[in-house]
Design a protein around this nucleic acid. Structure first.
Lengths: 238, 238
DNA sequence: ACTTGATTACTAGTATGCAAGAGGAGAAAC
DNA sequence: GTTTCTCCTCTTGCATACTAGTAATCAAGT
């Protein structure tokens, strides 16, 4: 899932990148965990070079923090960066959803319904991965409808921060149902070509992550880095 | 001038990155130019490693195109990517300007006036670099006023495509004056806390690059890559 | 017991060597 | 003259060796 734009390098770096990124986002590697180039190289049976390349890229995305001569660490969750990411995503997706609502077709309406069906099944099977995947696919599709499909790549980069929060908060079935209802609302309004309604629904949907963030910040404060002040770390920019 | 967020790597890579990026954006290295890691290494007196790292990063930004076992080339201007970049920038800056207009203070108003003064001087001196610099600084400041200063880093990455067009089109004094007028309009409306007016002014301002693009596409078609279809290259993502 | 200092074991940054593949130049065959 | 095949050069991808700097540990001195 979360098939982000792959680096153009060799297939070795590609795999490492996808795998490590997933492990970080799914919080198998907790924020603050120290990793190292040699450790990872040996573990994967490759040399430092491709690993190093992947580290650099993930550091650019804000998922790793490289401290020269000291080590590389899974970035702590910075509230500031998370809120920045949410802002970017909301701004871009609310704009594209307006365009999408003005670009509807029978085919598109059917496709959107299919995405909803997939999500409902994922919830029924209690398959978080599958739900996230279907979620992503639907957002991708909606952005494509807006006429700027490449925007998704940028959002993917920014979204990593948000996804990590979602994974860590272990969203429950109830929560997934709420998200699904929001998706249903968005889709219905987009299909009706209700631009302002669709935008409002998308905004509410994307802002619902705030609750998740607050809950997580309360229950697992050790995962966060305090300063909400001037953000010294980039917000991602895949 | 366009001090983009620096990579966290060693100072060697930092310098190379800044220098090469500037040379590409200022079109000293024309789109399509073939460069190579060894050529650049020897020219700069360093090894391939840091050069290679910089190449990767610039490829991620969409300014270079790396073809394995063949070579690395300054990316041609892709209309699709340019329009995508413009869309992202317009969407984000139009949203932040609304927030900025709601966050005004006496100090901020004075600062904005200072930026305008700087720009007027740059035009008087016919100093394109200085004007671009003051332009950037003002946009940065406005985004900061909106409360999400880190957004600028993302825009910086996206903006590279647009800046390259601006450099290549050799904007004249007349053109600079038009941009200045737009800036004046934006500032006055922001100071008046006229949110919708400021947003409209910003939108018009950021859309004026379309004229520049069309002119360049007409006069220098060899710099472009035809396909407006599915964009196979990322839109930048600093 | 505590502080201070040197040593040691790590880290990432850089340099370099090797492998694999793409592409052009030139010679040979027709 | 044209085509085709071979070889040679150049490219990036990957592996490895070396440098420099950090930090923790442990011993010595107080």
């Amino acid at each position: 899932m979360n098939e982000v734009t792959m680096p153009r390098s060799g297939p070795v770096a590609r795999e490492i990148y996808a795998a490590l990124r997933q492990r970080i986002m799914a919080a198998q590697l907790m924020p603050g965990t120290a990793i190292s180039e040699v450790q990872f190289s040996e573990q994967l049976g490759v040399s430092r070079t491709p690993v190093r390349e992947v580290f650099r890229r993930l550091a650019d995305e804000g998922l790793l923090r490289i401290v020269p001569q000291v080590g590389t660490f899974v970035a702590p969750i910075q509230l500031r960066a998370v809120y920045d990411s949410q802002f970017v995503r909301e701004t871009l997706e609310c704009r594209t959803i307006v365009l999408a609502a003005g670009n509807m077709s029978i085919q598109a309406a059917d496709d959107l319904q299919d995405f909803l069906t997939l999500q409902k099944r994922a919830i029924r099977d209690n398959d978080l991965e599958k739900f996230f995947d279907a979620d992503d696919r639907m957002h991708t599709y909606l952005i494509g409808l807006g006429g700027y499909p490449a925007i998704w790549e940028l959002i993917q980069g920014v979204k990593a921060q948000l996804d990590r929060v979602r994974y860590l908060s272990l969203e429950s079935g109830d929560w997934l149902n709420r998200i699904f209802d929001q998706h249903e609302m968005i889709v219905s309004r987009v299909i009706e070509a209700d631009t302002t309604g669709a935008e409002a629904a998308m905004r509410e949907h994307l802002q619902s992550v705030f609750l998740t963030i607050e809950k997580l910040a309360e229950n697992r404060p050790e995962l966060f880095e305090g300063n909400m002040g001037t953000s010294t770390t980039p917000i991602s920019t895949s």
